[in-house]
């Protein structure tokens, strides 16, 4: 313990805030890639900048005002909503049912589980191509299969008919996301204590009653998670539509969603001339969508969580 080798005492600042050094490097990335561009985007959304050149002027909230009466925005949002509702129903019925079946630990359970979750890890681009092939009128499998089982009248030009194109988007999204609902519900089911079911059985409940009265209420955290996840996923959908029906949301905007609309407005679709690109307007739509989605998410979580407590 000689005086010469005594270490320097650390400063009070480093004692109190020292751990924040660990945050700094990540924060710089976050700042540069997320926060600053977001602030920049907000600034841009109040101009009429096209995205190219220096020709711009400040227009205040005019872009936002315009969105309120911009028909394509509502049309796209409506399509998102249709996809959301349809996927939601699919997840909470078929997905839940498959999870229940898997929870009974059938033979080859591991196999089913692995297979049914597989599409989740596939890119939506790959998924889109798989189903483009399947649904192709010339070389696809779907039409001949429908004919084979006597439903030939359903066969058709799936992706170019307005009535079916959106259904196809839903169908493909369902295919890609089914694994989520199965795994989330399955882990929820596995967390239901065995004693609870046995107690209900002692009380004279039959299998169906046990499921609906005892097990199902225990699944509400899974229900909440899945609903919010589906909401975010379906309102951000872009890749599937882009690959299956193109940036225009063909046919005749029948599958146009917010993702493609904003993309097209801000960056131009293939058949748009650059004169029609309105970058600032597109950014305004994206920001408005972010705020509305955040609000709805927050509301959804609040409503569903309060239900969980009651349950």
């Amino acid at each position: 313990m000689t005086q010469a080798t005594l270490p320097k005492p650390p400063s009070q600042f480093s004692l109190r805030y020292g751990h924040l050094w660990f945050v700094l490097p990540g924060f710089l990335f976050f700042l540069a890639v997320m926060l600053l561009p977001l602030a920049f985007a907000f600034g841009v959304s109040m101009t009429n900048w096209s995205g190219l050149g220096n020709d711009l002027s400040f227009v205040g909230l005019a872009n936002y005002a315009e969105i309120l009466t911009y028909y394509p925005f509502y049309r796209a949002a409506f399509h998102n909503a249709v996809i959301f509702i349809a996927i939601l129903i699919f997840q909470h019925t078929i997905g839940l049912y498959l999870a229940v079946l898997l929870n009974e630990k059938p033979r080859f359970m591991q196999f089913y589980r692995t297979v049914l979750f597989l599409p989740v890890i596939m890119s939506l681009v790959a998924t889109g191509f798989v189903w483009t092939l399947m649904l192709s009128p010339n070389i696809g499998l779907v039409n001949p299969m429908l004919e084979a089982i006597g439903l030939g009248f359903l066969a058709g030009q799936w992706l170019s008919q307005p009535g079916t194109a959106l259904a196809v988007i839903v169908f493909v999204t369902a295919w890609n996301s089914m694994g989520w609902s199965i795994i989330i519900y399955l882990s929820g089911l596995q967390n239901v204590p065995e004693e609870l079911k046995q107690a209900a059985a002692m009380d004279g409940a039959n299998t169906r009653q046990i499921f609906w009265r005892v097990v199902f209420p225990q699944l509400s955290p899974a229900f909440t998670a899945l609903t919010v996840l589906t909401f975010i996923g379906t309102f951000r959908t872009f890749d599937v539509v882009y690959v299956l029906t193109g940036p225009l949301g063909a046919p005749n905007f029948g599958t146009d969603v917010l993702g493609t609309l904003i993309y097209r407005t801000a960056f131009g679709g293939s058949s748009f001339s650059s004169a029609e690109i309105r970058f600032a307007f597109g950014v305004a739509m994206a920001l408005l969508m972010m705020v509305v989605m955040a609000a709805i998410c927050w509301g959804l979580i609040r409503i569903l969580r309060s239900r969980e407590i009651e349950g």
Binding site: M1, L6, P7, P9, P10, Q12
Partner: peptide, 15 residues
């Protein structure tokens, strides 16, 4: 500790 006031020392420097 010893004759040294260690209030401001990090744990690792207190021996």
């Amino acid at each position: 500790i010893g004759d040294q006031v260690v209030n401001d020392f990090a744990s690792r420097d207190r021996d």
